[in-house]
């Protein structure tokens, strides 16, 4: 199963690396987003806003990547690849795992680049090598969760357009209503509970903690709970949906 998953994820990576517009969007988008949000909200909020912003940018690669990754699956439906795989003795679980691993590799690669660039306006890791390692692990776990969600929605959704919208809109909402964007206390009181439980907030706080800017344990546990709960559930249901899906 692992070798199959790796083969499949290798293919996902190759496709990604051979589609220049995809690469540009993937790597340029976060950097542009970072540099344009920075002067605006940096001016509105606090001095070392980049410590808050960089983690959010990295995580939003995963959330905003959900719609394109669903589009990739639909491209496979259209190309018939999906059907060919289904006639081969390959387990549904390894196919799903292959998809997830492929997307996570992409997300982490983009995260490395974005974080490197974030050093220019002053982003720093101050919690040692363990913090750095933990940082990218959280990014990977969060990315796996997002990919599972998008996979499930794509496999069970009615058509590509609806699926893309159904993934893009919540991603945008989650982006706004997260404490990665502005601190929880800057939100109106009534919405603060929502902001606090938003997985993008918990993951952002975990990442901020791992760069040495706050508590680690609580947000990390909350993020893991999200990843195992939502991500795990979606992955399991995706395996089922994959077996059932007939096109």
């Amino acid at each position: 199963m692992t070798s199959t998953a790796l083969l499949l994820s290798g293919r996902t990576m190759k496709r990604f690396l051979r589609t220049p517009p995809l690469i540009i969007i993937a790597f340029v988008f976060p950097v542009v987003l970072m540099f344009t949000i920075l002067p605006l909200y940096g001016g509105l909020i606090e001095d070392d806003y980049i410590q808050r912003l960089a983690p959010l940018i990295v995580l939003s690669t995963a959330t905003f990547g959900m719609a394109p990754s669903a589009a990739g699956l639909y491209a496979d439906f259209r190309a018939g690849i999906f059907n060919r795989l289904r006639t081969m003795p390959i387990s549904a679980a390894s196919t799903v795992a292959g998809r997830i691993v492929g997307e996570v590799l992409r997300i982490v690669a983009v995260a490395v680049v974005a974080i490197a660039v974030a050093h220019i306006p002053g982003f720093r890791f101050t919690a040692g090598p363990a913090g750095v390692l933990g940082f990218f692990c959280v990014v990977a776990v969060f990315g796996a969760m997002c990919t599972s969600v998008s996979l499930l929605v794509a496999l069970t959704g009615p058509d590509e357009d609806t699926v893309q919208s159904a993934l893009g809109t919540p991603a945008t909402l989650a982006f706004f209503l997260s404490s990665g964007f502005i601190p929880v206390t800057a939100f109106p009181g009534w919405i603060q509970p929502v902001v606090r439980v938003n997985p993008l907030s918990t993951a952002s706080e975990a990442l901020i903690g791992l760069t040495g800017g706050g508590p680690v344990a609580a947000p990390l546990l909350q993020t893991l709970a999200w990843a195992v709960g939502l991500g795990g559930l979606c992955a399991l249901l995706s395996v089922r949906a994959y077996r059932r899906r007939a096109r």
Partner: peptide, 25 residues
């Protein structure tokens, strides 16, 4: 199976496609 409509990866080369399916099998 070879279906009525092609089932190959457009972004890979012909050789890569065949190697990919072979490895999966």
């Amino acid at each position: 199976v070879t279906g009525q409509f092609a089932a190959i990866d457009e972004t890979l080369t012909g050789r890569e496609n065949l190697v990919f399916f072979g490895r999966l099998l």
